[in-house]
Write a protein that binds this DNA or RNA. Structure first.
Lengths: 248, 248
DNA sequence: CGGGAGCTTGATGGACCTCAATCCCTGTGG
DNA sequence: CCACAGGGATTGAGGTCCATCAAGCTCCCG
């Protein structure tokens, strides 16, 4: 990106032209990175002090533990994504976050976020707009869990992930690195790890895709998209200020 | 509510103290109501002109149709809820909306929403904050689909619905009216209508709750909450402006 | 060399789906 | 007033998808 070093700014530029002041604010927010080892907790459901984190490097997951010991993974925030906005704004909505690979984060304490909303409302809106896109992803995830079979879920999951990683340069045309293991995949897709394994074999044997050694490879994009019922989305969100400038 | 007639304003007051100007803007937005018959479409996935609607009266559902003819219901917007914010802000995220009962809506065309974001940013933020709460509900829904059994899903669904309707005066302490039928319930919970029916019988025979004649009655709240793994949420969201006034 | 994390495969059972049929209620038109 | 249609609820039988239990495999690392 041009002037700043903020990853979030880069992300938000899709939604709004940021002023110098807003840029600077974000750059400063992301100044002090935190490093976390793969497998470690980032924040836990019961935690008293809430913060928002911006993922700078590495993979994370957001999940909820159930009374029976089960776990449901809600999303896999990757670089440029925010963690915990919902938790800070809504006291009732608390989930846990874990580092999947080694991770670098920028931490923003809750009071600071609130101040941001009050002092730079456009920036706050851009932030919330970004969370709206997260929401859209969660809705797609929900549809998978509700109405798709195991093999369709898996195929759909990887196709969507691919589309998410492509624009940030973390994926090639037909393959990408992915540190998720079969247990994480199972907890995200509402399946058992054993069944995930079987369905991955099925996908492999049908010549559709392979997932091995932390690497996803698509062998036949057309057919796998067909199987998953997946439609590539050309996501052109609205742009604040630009919209008003054009007298919409 | 005190001065205005806007239902949305009432809802947003939880998040932000609105100025006179913002109040007036919302009142005017909701001035011309639209009536829709139960069962009719409100807006359809492929529709070209996008609008946001505010539910004034009656029940609606948001859903997505799948290539195989199946349907997944994402949410049931009730009075005070917004419909289609996500669709307007993100072109890629389009779903269909249907009236369940006879419904009264206020329609706001997309350009107007964009203008709102630019001219009254605090109001825009309050709106997006409200959608953040929707997101939290969708996450709970996702967890149900991923990791709860059929009977747990049903119990959890009605408990959550109850908690949503209580504060707006649409529910009593142990019962409420609910125009949803077993097919809608099935499509929301990722089940077949037949299995929903069986599980409802199970709940009835165990003396936990009954759902008949568009009416839900809880017979043993403690036991059904236990079954569903449900924890009542005291949702105290942050308040904009107030927070800054208190020098947080 | 032992141990653990992650992957793989087989066997069995259960949760839930599908197909099929019946029943009730309400609205509608002759 | 009755016939009829249609939406919704209900129940049974059979089959499928996926979970669970159990075991063995391959790495990697100390």
């Amino acid at each position: 990106m041009a002037q700043g070093k903020s990853l979030l700014a880069k992300r938000l530029t899709v939604f709004a032209q940021l002023t110098e002041e807003e840029q600077a604010y974000l750059d400063e927010l992301e100044a002090r990175p935190v490093h976390i080892k793969g497998g470690a907790e980032i924040s836990y459901e019961g935690q008293s002090t809430q913060s928002v984190y911006i993922v700078q490097h590495g993979w994370t997951c957001e999940y909820k533990l159930l009374p029976d010991g089960g776990r449901q993974i809600i999303a896999f925030p990757v670089p440029g994504d925010c963690i915990g906005v919902r938790s800070v704004l809504l006291k009732a909505s608390r989930h846990s976050f874990q580092a999947i690979s080694d991770v670098t984060l920028s931490r923003i304490d809750a009071p600071r976020i609130i101040r941001l909303f009050n002092e730079l409302p456009y920036l706050g809106m851009a932030l919330l707009l970004a969370t709206t896109r997260n929401e859209a992803m969660i809705v797609e995830h929900l549809i998978s869990l509700g109405r798709r079979t195991a093999i369709e879920r898996i195929a759909h999951f990887f196709l969507e992930l691919h589309d998410r990683l492509l624009p940030v340069g973390l994926a090639g045309r037909t393959e990408f690195d992915c540190p998720i293991n079969q247990y994480l995949l199972a907890d995200a897709l509402g399946l058992s790890a054993i069944h995930v394994n079987r369905m991955l074999r099925e996908l492999r044997e049908q010549g559709l895709m392979t997932f091995a050694d932390h690497k996803v490879t698509f062998h036949d994009l057309a057919r796998i998209e067909q199987l998953a019922g997946y439609f590539r989305s050309s996501d052109t969100p609205i742009i604040l200020r630009d919209a008003v400038a054009k007298k919409i």
